[in-house]
Simulated scan of single mutants.
Amino acid sequence: MKTKHKPYGPYERFIKRPIDIFCALAAIIVFCWLYVIVAILVRVKLGSPVLFTQDRPGKDEKIFKLYKFRTMTDARDEHGNQLPDDVRLTKFGKLLRATSLDELPEAFNILKGDMSVIGPRPLLVKYLPLYNEEQRRRHEVRPGLSGYAQVNGRNAVSWEEKFKLDVEYVDHITFLGDVHIIFSTVMKAFVKREGISSETAATMEEFRGTAVKQ
């Protein structure tokens, strides 16, 4: 039976959302120059539209529009079909992803209330029917710009391990935990640059569901 998530303390109940709003506003104001520079570079190197938008499931599986700077070209074969991700993902796109600059526009999703600074990453809508009951619990809270799974392997760990970490976060949301994830995210994005890709794909293999153990 699906149970509704209950905040576990004052931080999650009263403080987390105001901090999200403050951080998103501060990022947009302080880094407005960076938004402009990245937008111009994306337009020159990858074309338009500058922003990539896609439906993603949020809290309680409510669908919202996710905003990101595009990192791939729209290259297609002779039949009009899009080429694979590893072909369309350019060196510039890889740099945006490695530094997480492609995710700057998600600050607007945070302001709107679609997302939080920290939480399980919002994935594809088509994955919703594939989750088991435990994995589905990742949608009991707002998805995040970064999350516990992102600082513990990002795209280099299996889907099952990633979802396990997401649910662990849902059950243990604390101020110090969020601060630790933010610090670890900055370190991994700008210093270590770990876990950007899986071992067999340019980003992450498609989730096809978890096999049920007999």
Rank of each mutant, 00 (worst) to 15 (best):
N152P: 05
D77N: 15
V141K: 10
D77F: 07
F175P: 00
I181Y: 12
T3M: 01
Q135H: 14
Q214S: 13
T53E: 09
N81W: 02
T210F: 10
L83F: 05
R43E: 01
H172W: 02
K213R: 12
A39K: 04
V167A: 09
H180Q: 14
K164L: 07
A107P: 00
Q214E: 14
L41W: 09
V117H: 04
E206K: 14
E134L: 08
K6R: 12
I110P: 13
V167T: 13
L128P: 04
G9H: 03
A107H: 12
L89P: 00
T90W: 03
A201F: 05
N109P: 03
S48D: 04
F207E: 04
A26G: 05
K188G: 01
K6G: 00
Y8A: 11
R13K: 10
Q82S: 11
P49D: 09
E61M: 12
G58Y: 00
R17K: 13
I19K: 03
E161F: 03
T210S: 15
L176D: 05
A107E: 12
P18R: 05
R97H: 01
G209Y: 07
P18D: 06
A202Y: 01
K164Q: 14
L51T: 02
D178H: 11
T71Y: 05
Y131T: 07
L176Y: 07
K94E: 10
G9F: 01
N155R: 12
I181V: 15
Y67A: 01
I63L: 13
E194G: 03
A24V: 09
D86K: 06
A201Q: 06
L165D: 11
T185D: 08
G195R: 12
Q82I: 11
L89C: 02
S116L: 08
T185A: 09
K188V: 11
I29P: 02
I29A: 15
E78C: 04
R154W: 08
R136S: 14
R88F: 00
P122V: 02
L130F: 09
V50S: 04
L176E: 06
L124G: 06
K112V: 02
V87R: 04
G195Y: 10
G144Q: 08
M1T: 06
C32F: 14
V151A: 07
D77S: 06
T203H: 13
S100D: 04
V141I: 15
V167S: 08
E206V: 15
G119S: 10
F69W: 07
L165V: 09
K68R: 07
A211K: 14
K162V: 00
T200E: 13
V117R: 03
P49N: 08
N152H: 15
S116M: 11
F69P: 01
Q214M: 05
